[in-house]
Design a protein around this nucleic acid. Structure first.
Length: 264
DNA sequence: TATAGTGTTATCGG
DNA sequence: ACCGATAACACTAT
């Protein structure tokens, strides 16, 4: 499911395939995913327009058009699929929804049809994704891929929240999800429950470097499921560095796996 | 059959 | 007002 790296691969697909084609039909009838606009309002705003650029900050995407901006968030189970002139489907190589067969429209929640017969759809079984016009993005923190050490220290300096909860706070820094957070904390050898107020300057700098490394690695390797500690997020697994049994906890409301020996 | 889940947001309580 | 925790959302996979 999508964190920053998966959203970036989706953005790349949109940029490569979906720009500069005239929109001749829009299916925005799923008013749970397409909101808060009235049914048909997104359709009316986009008919006859073209997508002109695909942008991303954290896990949020927005598409510039010759009309209003189209915001797309993949939620926990969404993926973008582009159907080309020969009905071949292109997605980000995302590892989830692997079981979906080409042409399966059961979970298509939003669709743009272009004049040349191609189309772009949001496929989202759980319907936790969102499509909206002119989405707000200013509230998001700096993108986790290019946040500077100084910005990172500022984002993690205030308050008493567990450091993992802060890493997941999209207004502090944008793009880190549950798996990336576990990887970052494991790489930096920081306990997920440690209050941000207890982090030292060296801790913060290690965390920032671990964030950059983890995001870059996941983008290069094809998603957060390729991160090195992810296979060890299970009962009975041993830390791949020190062979201590991994421990499970709930931090920031999310399932958390960490090495109790190294992450102190 | 029961439960957990890679995300976000409204609401509650301190 | 600020900060953090929790429940809810809808559906699939185990």
């Amino acid at each position: 499911m999508p964190e920053l790296p998966e959203v970036e691969s989706a953005r790349t697909v949109l940029e490569r395939y979906a720009l500069d084609r005239e929109i001749v039909d829009v299916d925005d009838t799923d008013t749970w995913v397409c909101r808060p606009h009235a049914p048909g309002s997104i359709r009316a705003a986009l008919l006859g327009r073209k997508l002109t650029a695909a942008n991303r900050r954290g896990k949020s995407m927005w598409l510039d058009t010759t009309g209003p901006t189209l915001g797309i968030h993949l939620g926990m189970s969404g993926k973008m699929v582009f159907v080309d002139e020969s009905s071949a489907e292109h997605d980000g190589g995302d590892y989830w929804q692997r079981g979906r067969a080409p042409g399966d429209h059961r979970f298509t929640r939003f669709e743009l049809s272009f004049r040349d017969g191609t189309s772009l759809m949001l496929v989202d079984p759980r319907r936790l994704g969102r499509v909206r016009l002119d989405p707000p993005v200013e509230h998001l923190g700096p993108d986790a891929r290019d946040i500077t050490p100084a910005q990172f220290r500022a984002a993690l300096s205030r308050g008493t929240a567990p450091v993992k909860a802060r890493l997941l706070d999209q207004e502090a820094l944008a793009g880190v999800g549950n798996l990336l957070a576990d990887q970052i904390l494991w790489l930096a050898k920081v306990n997920p429950s440690r209050p941000v107020s207890a982090l030292t300057r060296p801790d913060l700098d290690r965390l920032q470097r671990a964030t950059r490394r983890s995001v870059d690695a996941a983008i290069a390797e094809g998603g957060v499921h390729t991160l090195s500690v992810v296979p060890y997020r299970r009962e009975g697994a041993l830390c791949p560095r020190c062979h201590t049994e991994m421990r499970r906890a709930t931090v920031g409301g999310r399932t958390t796996w960490f090495c109790p020996r190294e992450q102190v």
